[in-house]
């Protein structure tokens, strides 16, 4: 798997390259500014990207904009966005296309190396990995939204699903059997009126429904 890495801090770029390489990925290129990132993403041999939100030249939200743009040209192109802070607003923008294959994490999550590498792998496989901080903010939301139909347990399962976890991982996290998790996910899909489809896509759409509620 060939990845483009955009990170303007040399120290962090080195660290990330090391972690990604150790995780079995090939870092095809490291860039530190938006124009170079555009060029790197235009390379058809690249399988995905790990992007920092703030880049040269204006140090605002280049990473988010680049992610949205590249996915307009190449729908479903896997992008993992890393940031010093997370915003629901940006999570929505990243997920708006509904194609999945999106990660949006706080930079500090990288310190849990196995978890992070696993997240990148899931994004490359078309999954969605959203930072627990964003999810917590959504959890605290209004009581009258459509997700109210979900039981407490189902909401927990959905939250873990949004973090990009597999059924097995969710089962381990909640101390229940994988079969029980499968039952919950099916209940979630039914309650959110998600038609039978490829499982991964339904998971993405359940998360989307949740974010948009």
């Amino acid at each position: 798997m060939r990845l483009v890495l955009a990170e303007d801090h040399a120290l962090l770029a080195d660290g990330l390259t090391r972690i990604l390489t150790a995780g079995g990925f090939t870092v095809a290129g490291v860039v530190d500014n938006a124009p170079e990132l555009d060029r790197a993403l235009a390379d058809p041999d690249v399988d995905g990207a790990v992007l920092d939100v703030r880049l040269h030249p204006s140090f605002t939200d280049e990473g988010i904009r680049a992610a949205v743009k590249v996915r307009e040209d190449r729908p479903g192109f896997p992008v993992m966005v890393l940031s010093q802070y997370v915003e629901q607003l940006y999570a929505r923008e990243l997920l708006a296309s509904g194609d999945g294959a999106i990660g949006y994490l706080l930079k500090d999550r990288v310190s849990d190396v196995t978890e992070f590498v696993d997240g990148v792998r899931r994004v490359l496989a078309g999954g969605t990995v959203i930072d627990p901080e964003v999810i917590a903010a959504i959890m605290a939301r209004r009581p009258d939204d459509p997700l109210d139909r979900l039981t407490e347990r189902e909401r927990e399962v959905l939250a873990l699903m949004a973090e990009g976890r597999s059924n097995a991982a969710i089962a381990a996290g909640l101390f229940v059997t994988e079969k029980a998790v499968a039952k919950h996910t099916n209940a979630i899909f039914t309650k959110l009126d998600l038609p039978v489809d490829i499982d991964d896509n339904r998971r993405v759409r359940a998360v989307l429904a949740w974010l948009r509620a």
Partner: peptide
């Protein structure tokens, strides 16, 4: 940071999203 990125309109939108 979102204020620096998106100005007052975007930042107020971000605030609104975080409300219960």
């Amino acid at each position: 940071p979102v204020l620096a990125d998106r100005g007052i309109s975007g930042a107020v939108q971000a605030l609104a999203l975080d409300m219960a």
